[in-house]
Design a protein around this nucleic acid. Structure first.
Length: 202
DNA sequence: CATGGGATTGACT
DNA sequence: GTCAATCCCATGC
C-alpha cells in the first residue's frame, strides 16, 4: 500500500506536512516519517533553483520520484519529488521513528538508542540503506516505498519552524515536525518539546 | 580542468 | 561551542 503519484502532484507546502506520520520502507527496514522540509525552485536553498542540470533533472521529473544526493561528501539525503513534471520541488525526509527492522538498523548504525537510529537526514539513510543508486527511482512502485499514515498517526500534530543547516532562504518556515516525537532532529523548532520517555517499571 | 561549497554527523574542547 | 571527513557537481577560467 503506497501513496499514489497524485499525492505528490500538489504544492510542496501541502505535501510536506502531510508526509509527517506516513511510512517510509526500504527492504526489511521501515519507519514513520516525523520530520520533513519543503524545497521549491523559486527559493535559493533548493537545488532546482539553478535550473535544469545533470544533477537537478530528477527534481523536475514526475511527482513521486525519489531524489537522493550526497551531502558534505559523506551522507546521502533522500527527497520525494512534488508538483507537476517540469516544476523543481521536493520534500526532504529529515527523521523517522523506527518501525521495523530495528535490529538491522542497529547493525548499520552501531550502538545507540532506538530513538537515535533515524533522528537526522543522514542517519535515516544509513539505517535504511538508502544510497545514490535509488536516485530517480519511483516511490510508488520502486524499491523505496512511502505508505499512508497508520491509524495511530492519523491526527498527528505538526510543529512548524525554519529549515535547518541552510544559508539561503533560511527564514522560510518550511520545516514540519511531529509534535512530541523523540526522534525529531536537533535543533528543535521553536515551541517543540519531546514527550517524556515511557515510564519505567520498578 | 581546478576550485569551492554544501539540505550533516560525530568526536572533541 | 569547534572541526574534520570527503563526494558530487556547478561554476569559472
Amino acid at each position: 500500500m503506497t501513496l499514489p503519484a497524485a499525492f505528490y502532484d500538489r504544492p510542496v507546502l501541502e505535501v510536506a506536512p502531510e508526509l509527517v506520520g506516513c511510512t517510509l520502507a526500504h527492504g526489511a527496514t521501515a519507519g514513520v516519517i516525523v520530520e520533513t522540509e519543503a524545497y521549491h525552485q523559486t527559493e535559493a536553498a533548493c537545488h532546482a533553483h539553478v535550473g535544469l542540470t545533470a544533477r537537478t533533472h530528477v527534481l523536475f521529473g514526475a511527482p513521486g520520484t525519489v531524489y537522493v544526493y550526497r551531502s558534505y561528501g559523506i551522507h546521502a539525503l533522500v527527497n520525494l519529488v512534488c508538483e507537476p513534471e517540469g516544476v523543481g520541488a521536493a520534500v526532504l525526509i529529515r527523521a523517522l521513528e523506527p518501525l521495523s527492522g530495528v535490529g538491522i538498523m542497529h547493525e548499520r548504525r552501531g550502538v545507540g538508542e532506538d530513538e537515535r537510529l533515524c533522528s537526522g537526514p543522514g542517519k535515516l539513510t544509513q539505517a535504511l540503506d538508502i544510497e545514490l543508486d535509488l536516485n530517480g527511482t519511483d516511490a510508488i512502485d520502486g524499491p523505496l516505498q512511502v505508505g499512508p499514515r497508520p491509524p495511530a498517526w492519523a491526527d498527528v500534530d505538526i510543529v512548524t519552524g525554519p529549515r535547518i543547516g541552510i544559508t539561503k532562504a533560511a527564514e522560510l518556515p518550511w520545516r514540519f515536525c511531529a509534535a512530541g516525537s523523540r526522534s525529531v532532529s536537533r535543533p528543535w523548532p521553536p515551541g517543540f518539546r519531546p514527550a517524556p520517555r515511557a515510564a519505567r517499571v520498578r
